[in-house]
């Protein structure tokens, strides 16, 4: 008979073992991608596959970065993702402030109109959005990647919910001091909303960075394309089976870094401001 204490220790030990194995298992595709990104094409085409790093790391990353133009695509994606993230955050703070701290006609209707945009993801309106953007002469410009994404039901909803949860005692003091709406917003609400802002930044940056279908149809010049489509170029070139796998894996690593860094940096805000929100 094992004593309860030993049993607890054993359980903890096996939990650690299981968690370490799971972390490795989830990471394994990326680990293999990392290994392949260091191997030359001839090494990769060897069978059985080599599980040790090769010596072509510099070459693979250079080919991906220059020959497949990923450097330029990274820049495009960065500009677009930052513009949308910042724009969306500001616009939704304004909208939520109006909804929580003002009274005006048709308020609930306006909120419903904003909320119902959730029913209209890109695939639902893609055919006509494509025509509209073409008619506006915005096709193949950054604007086509930025403007249609500016409205945010998620952002408005999250900020509205957060503003409603701020105790009035905190916000009233500022207004007794005579702060106007703009000052109230920038000096009181924004500093009190850092978790929500952080969470929204993570969500929106990743969402924008990972866009694929819309840029595929609306961006024509290779120089304005986004990084996700660079991966399509990498896997689309070469004959079946003899694709440039080394540069493709290098490209995948490059493309995943910015959203991953933002996610890791803002993870706590993301968990607190979004996922761990208590249901009300």
């Amino acid at each position: 008979m094992v004593s309860p204490k030993t049993r607890d220790k054993l359980a903890t030990f096996f939990t650690h073992v299981a968690l370490i194995l799971l972390v490795l298992l989830i990471a394994s595709p990326i680990i293999f991608a990392l290994i392949a990104s260091t191997q030359s094409t001839s090494t990769i085409l060897n069978y059985p596959p080599q599980f040790f790093p090769g010596n072509a790391i510099v070459r693979n990353f250079t080919v991906a970065w220059t020959q497949y133009n990923l450097g330029r695509l990274m820049l495009n994606s960065t500009i677009i993702a930052i513009a949308v993230t910042v724009g969306k955050t500001i616009i939704s703070i304004f909208a939520a402030t109006a909804l929580v701290y003002f009274d005006f006609p048709f308020k609930s209707l306006i909120f419903v109109i904003i909320l119902l945009t959730l029913l209209l993801p890109v695939p639902v309106r893609i055919v006509s959005l494509f025509e509209l953007i073409n008619n506006l002469g915005l096709a193949d410009t950054y604007y086509a990647m930025i403007f249609p994404f500016f409205a945010s039901a998620t952002g408005t909803f999250l900020f509205r919910q957060h503003f409603q949860s701020i105790p009035e005692s905190l916000t009233d003091a500022a207004r007794v001091d005579g702060a106007g709406p703009i000052r109230f917003m920038t000096q009181i609400l924004v500093p009190m909303s850092m978790n929500t802002i952080g969470a929204l930044a993570v969500i929106q940056f990743i969402y924008m960075w990972n866009q694929y279908l819309w840029p595929l149809i609306i961006m024509q010049s290779d120089n304005k394309q986004v990084i996700q489509l660079g991966l399509k170029m990498l896997t689309g070139s070469g004959r079946a089976g003899v694709k440039p796998w080394g540069p493709a894996m290098a490209g995948s690593i490059i493309a995943m870094l910015p959203p991953l860094i933002i996610f890791l940096l803002l993870q706590e805000q993301f968990m607190k401001g979004f996922a761990l929100k208590e249901e009300k």
Binding site: F94, A98, L99, I114, V124, R125, L132, A151
Partner: peptide, 24 residues
């Protein structure tokens, strides 16, 4: 003022979400 605050969200929603959806 509140309508001004809401204007960007509403304009983008109508122009790039509701209108193309309706046209589709």
């Amino acid at each position: 003022l509140p309508l001004l605050f809401l204007a960007p969200t509403l304009i983008v929603s109508v122009l790039f979400l509701y209108y193309p959806a309706g046209m589709s």
